[in-house]
């Protein structure tokens, strides 16, 4: 087991390295000239050349990648002399449109995204799995059909549609909630919940639909297994049979999907953050596209992809916790 973990962590580090490469070279292929983007309105050949030198764009792509990589571990300095900008390790780049290291921008924007992701995650896992089990136990009856129909609708509606409808009715028409304005929970807990509740619920509905269907199909499969019959033959009450035997056995794909979904959400829910004006990673990425500011995009992409890779590792390790056959072979 220990060997397995070490091996997986090493593979992850390799993957992360490949990831930086992929992201860096992909963005260097873009036709945008970063030196011109940060040059300002009155741009002479001289300032352009100065910009190029400061950003390291006068070097070859491979040298640039090397500098970027060393910057990640040891920090780097943009430019020379009094105009030099220092970016401490781990340096994900420097945004010259906002005059801030990209990492600081990302760290600033992370809390709203984390709160949004975690809140929605708890809601859709509890809701999705619970309703999925309920539906499986009433297979073919009207409750099951109703749940399946509703989840199909939830599954197919786009988030901007549900989000805008929710804002229109709940905030504008019925005035049940104030307009969203994000405050950290430690400063204004009530305002925080009032702002977050709608995006939480909207996001949860979208994801819960998927988890309901997944859980239902898993349950229908495991409930037919021989070991479920054994559990019943032992005289176990039905709720123990369902929870301890059937649900546990069907958990693996649910954990996989949940891990990757959570990681994806931590990378920013672009549309919902924009609709509900949450200052998170998603809306940072959107404004970086509009500015445009490539250094921020590279940073956000790297951080998001890192979440996914780490989540993948955690999911794989969780397999071993769930299924002893993985652990021992």
């Amino acid at each position: 087991m220990a060997g397995y973990v070490v091996r997986r962590v090493l593979i992850m580090i390799l993957l992360l390295l490949l990831l930086t490469m992929a992201v860096f070279f992909l963005f260097s292929l873009l036709p945008a000239d970063v030196a011109r983007l940060t040059c300002g309105k009155i741009c002479t050949e001289q300032t352009l050349a100065l910009n190029r030198a400061r950003l390291g764009l006068d070097k070859s792509v491979f040298e640039q990648y090397w500098i970027f990589l060393t910057g990640l571990f040891f920090g780097r300095t943009f430019g020379e002399g009094p105009a030099a900008v220092v970016c401490d390790a781990p340096c994900l780049g420097y945004s010259f449109t906002r005059n801030e290291p990209v990492l600081d921008l990302i760290v600033d924007r992370l809390p709203p995204t984390i709160f949004l992701a975690m809140g929605a995650f708890v809601l859709f896992i509890i809701g999705g799995v619970g309703v999925g089990v309920y539906s499986a136990l009433r297979r073919g009856r009207w409750q099951d059909k109703g749940v399946m129909g509703a989840s199909l609708i939830g599954y197919s509606l786009p988030s901007f549609f549900i989000g805008l409808v929710a804002i229109y009715f709940i905030i504008i028409r019925w005035k049940l909630l104030p307009f969203p304005s994000y405050e950290p929970p430690w400063e204004d807990p009530v305002g925080f919940v009032q702002t977050m509740i709608l995006p939480w619920v909207v996001l949860a509905i979208l994801y819960a639909a998927f988890y309901t269907r997944l859980t239902r199909s898993q349950m229908l499969e495991t409930l037919n297994e021989d070991y479920i019959r054994t559990a019943r033959a032992k005289g176990l009450p039905e709720r123990v049979v369902v929870r301890k035997h059937a649900l546990r056995a069907g958990l693996t794909p649910i954990v996989t999907a949940a891990g990757l979904d959570l990681a994806g959400l931590l990378g920013g829910a672009i549309i919902l953050e924009t609709i509900f004006s949450l200052p998170g990673l998603g809306s940072l990425a959107v404004s970086a596209v509009l500015d445009p500011d490539l250094s921020i995009l590279v940073g956000v992409t790297l951080v998001t992809a890192t979440f996914i890779i780490v989540a993948n590792l955690i999911v794989d390790l969780l397999y071993a916790v769930i299924d002893p056959r993985v652990r021992l072979s």
Binding site: E225, D226, Y227, R229, T230, A231, R232, A233, K234, G235, L236, P237, E238, H245, R248, A249, I322, D323, P324, R325
Partner: peptide
């Protein structure tokens, strides 16, 4: 249910699929 496993018990055909794979 309370008689199952106490007064009457059953053994099945395939012991591998009849035991829960995730529990000792």
């Amino acid at each position: 249910r309370s008689l199952r496993g106490s007064t009457m018990a059953m053994i099945f055909q395939d012991p591998l699929s009849s035991l829960h794979p995730f529990y000792r």
